[in-house]
C-alpha cells in the first residue's frame, strides 16, 4: 500500500482542507495581520507535502504535477513582475496605482493584496517543486534504500 497508515490518512483528510483555507486566509489578510504571501505560500506547500507523505506521490502528483508546479511558479513570478510594470506605466516602477481606502479593510491597500497572492502562488509551488526535486525525482533516496538493504 502506498503512503502511510490508515490513521495518518484519516487525519490528513480531516486537516487538509483547514490547512489550505488557513493558508489562503493568511495570504489574503497579509496586509492587515501578521503573515503575507510568503507565509501563506509556505503553508500551501506544506499542505501538498503532507498529502505526498500521507498518500504517496501518485495522489499528490495527480493534484499538482511537477509540470504545473513549475508553470505556476513562473506565472506567479511573472504576475508579480507585471504588477511592477503596471505601476511603471502609471509613473514609477512598483507604484501603488490602485486607489487606497481606510485601513483594516480587505481591499484597502492597493496592489499589496494582488502582490501577496502572486507571491503565495510563486512560493507555494516553488517550495513544492523543490521538495519534489529533492525527494521523489532524486536518485538519492532509492540509492540509500538499496545500500541499507545490502547492510
Amino acid at each position: 500500500m502506498e503512503g502511510m497508515t490508515f490513521i495518518v490518512k484519516t487525519i490528513t483528510k480531516l486537516l487538509i482542507g483547514a490547512i489550505f483555507l488557513f493558508a489562503i486566509y493568511i495570504t489574503f489578510y497579509g496586509h492587515l495581520t501578521p503573515g503575507g504571501g510568503f507565509a501563506g505560500g509556505i503553508m500551501l506547500a506544506c499542505g501538498f507535502i503532507l498529502l505526498t507523505l500521507a498518500f504517496g506521490k501518485k495522489m499528490s502528483l495527480g493534484k499538482l504535477s511537477d509540470f504545473w508546479a513549475s508553470l505556476i511558479d513562473n506565472l506567479g513570478a511573472i504576475t508579480f513582475w507585471s504588477i511592477g510594470m503596471l505601476g511603471y506605466l502609471s509613473g514609477y516602477f512598483f507604484m501603488n496605482f490602485i486607489e487606497k481606502s481606510n485601513p483594516f479593510g480587505l481591499f484597502s491597500s492597493g496592489t499589496i493584496l494582488i502582490s501577496n497572492i502572486a507571491i503565495c502562488l510563486k512560493v507555494g509551488s516553488s517550495i513544492f517543486a523543490v521538495f519534489l526535486a529533492l525527494t521523489i525525482f532524486g536518485r538519492f533516496i532509492s540509492d540509500l534504500i538499496a545500500s541499507e538493504d545490502e547492510d
Binding site: S70, N74, I78, W81
Partner: peptide, 24 residues
Amino acid sequence: ESWLPIFVVAPLGMAFFNLIITKF
C-alpha cells in the same frame, strides 16, 4: 530618466517568461 529600472527589469522578467514559453 524613467527608463533606468529597465536595466534590471528586462532581464528579470525575461528570465521567468523564458521558462514559461519554453514549456510550449
